[in-house]
């Protein structure tokens, strides 16, 4: 009886773990491919050249801009966790809306401690309001 309980418990645990990381698998692949060269796989950035993603106060207060930043890039001075950055980031206009959603969700979950899920419709909305962000 005890053994049966243990098996059930293990199966449940595995399914919970696999479910909670499943949605971010593609996001991680995309992040590693497009973002990690500059922002590093662990999101730590590089000194004064590339800002950190991990625990970035800038991203926490610019959540709705993230899709636009990925699509159009970012130019000008920004302050992240008390440090100033001015290096231009090139955008990635070829990344599809659904893949932007994957990246945004991965970044939110992994680096910003936010489990709220952003869907493609919301990404579309964000992308249609980019003018204010990119100036």
């Amino acid at each position: 009886m005890n053994r049966l309980l243990l098996i059930i418990f293990t199966v449940l645990l595995i399914s919970i773990v696999s479910c909670s990381t499943k949605g971010f698998k593609r996001g991680k692949i995309l992040y590693d491919a497009y973002c990690s060269d500059c922002h590093m796989n662990d999101g730590s950035g590089l000194e004064g050249l590339f800002p950190p993603i991990d625990n970035s106060d800038y991203l926490k207060t610019h959540k709705l801009d993230l899709a636009c930043i990925i699509h159009y890039g970012l130019e000008g001075k920004i302050k992240v966790n008390g440090k100033e950055y001015s290096q231009k980031m090139n955008g990635f206009p070829k990344i599809t809306e659904s893949d932007i959603a994957n990246i945004v969700n991965y970044i939110n979950y992994k680096f910003l401690g936010d489990e709220e899920y952003v869907n493609i419709k919301e990404i579309k909305e964000m992308l249609s309001n980019c003018d204010e962000v990119i100036e």
Binding site: S36, L46, L49, N90
Partner: peptide, 13 residues
């Protein structure tokens, strides 16, 4: 360099 250089610099640091 937009590709591997930042990662190399991170390690060199």
């Amino acid at each position: 360099c937009p590709t591997i250089c930042p990662k190399v610099k991170k390690q060199e640091l």
